[in-house]
Design a protein around this nucleic acid. Structure first.
Lengths: 212, 212
DNA sequence: GTCTATAGGTCGATAGAC
DNA sequence: GTCTATCGACCTATAGAC
């Protein structure tokens, strides 16, 4: 009884993961509107009806994919904290600015690898459904809080412009995760991913202009 | 005969402008996918059939709106050149960096006023139709050329980072026209449009970090 | 005002596990 | 034989096109 239900749950979980992975790929490549539920089912290797046993709507699919990236981002942030703690023991302190740059790099690399799901900026029905998705909101707030701590710390240390609202800095870093500049440079095919990340990171923190 | 056809053409032209204005508003507020042709017809105050006499597809509507903004951008760039010429005569030279900042401000103000049409970043059918829209491509190239001149001039003068490809600078400025950071700050309702423009302009050119 | 295709969402038949 | 997970087939509304 117990094992049976556990096995069933495991199978269900595997299928869920296959679906979310498919949604993630499709959101990264085509975007929400161009993605069809039929495609998701095909990519995940199951019938649409089976998919609808696990997710009740297309919006919920998008929500699950967004929860997925946010979880990966949070895991990366945690790993950065751990590394920083170890480095500090070894006498190599890490600054909050370093951490913020590392997260931003991670987001851009994820985008370049085609693994960053992106949603339309302002879609009424989708964004309202996301706003009422507790799992999503929870992750978003947690991530924002973690980053905001680093941001204000960097500002008090004089590493970041203190006259900018920390909100603006936060939004700017989030925006790098779906920056069209990254996409365009990649599309041009002239540069390596590493080169692109370095350049955009540099323009984000040091700007386009030379110090006057 | 001649006058009659001319009048007809004028009427046709007025209707076209009403349509393009409606498309512009809808693209700025809801985006391409959420915009329906029925809405466009309603906003423009005519039957959908009449609309299809002037534009053969939804994609063409989007193209016409994009041509519209690019024309306004080019007009603004021209006005900047004229002003710079006059200022130079009066002994007040204008630097290419000033010009680039002015164009970027214009784009962000246009976005804040709800008059910046925006398209999905990577939509296959729409972007291919735009690529084969001669009027659009023509304006895009012209504008890119004008800006590229200022960019390379600013780089040789040491006003912009010379090690960045001018392409990256160009893309970055275009990206400000549909920057989600601007949209989010506006949505928060806490700041004036002028404040938002100043901040984003500053982070674009001087970066988030303090000069080390 | 009509036509038609597409895509989100459902249902009943089937097959395999116990 | 029963139960349930799965899937092909189906329904229907919307929106582009004429």
């Amino acid at each position: 009884m117990k094992t049976r239900s556990s096995i069933k749950e495991q199978i269900q979980r595997v299928r869920e993961e296959a679906i979310v992975a498919a949604v993630n790929r499709l959101l990264a490549t085509k975007g929400y509107d161009a993605m069809t539920v039929d495609e998701v089912a095909a990519e995940a290797g199951m019938a649409k009806a089976s998919l609808y046993k696990l997710f009740t709507s297309k919006e919920e699919l998008a929500g699950a994919a967004m929860v997925g990236v946010l979880d990966r981002a949070l895991a990366f942030v945690d790993s950065l904290r751990d590394e920083a703690a170890k480095a500090a023991e070894a006498g190599l302190p890490t600054t909050p600015l370093d951490q913020l740059k590392a997260v931003t790099s991670w987001a851009m690399r994820t985008q370049l690898e085609g693994e960053m799901p992106s949603l339309p900026a302002q879609n009424s029905s989708l964004s309202t459904s996301l706003q009422s998705n507790d799992a999503y909101i929870d992750r978003l707030i947690t991530l924002s809080n973690r980053l905001s701590i680093w941001i204000t710390e960097a500002q008090t240390r004089g590493q970041l412009q203190a006259m900018l609202p920390s909100e603006l800095v936060l939004y700017t870093l989030f925006a790098r995760a779906c920056d069209p500049v990254v996409a365009l440079l990649k599309e041009s095919g002239q540069y390596t991913n590493q080169q692109i990340v370095e350049w955009v990171l540099s323009t984000t923190f040091e700007g386009l202009a030379l110090p006057q």
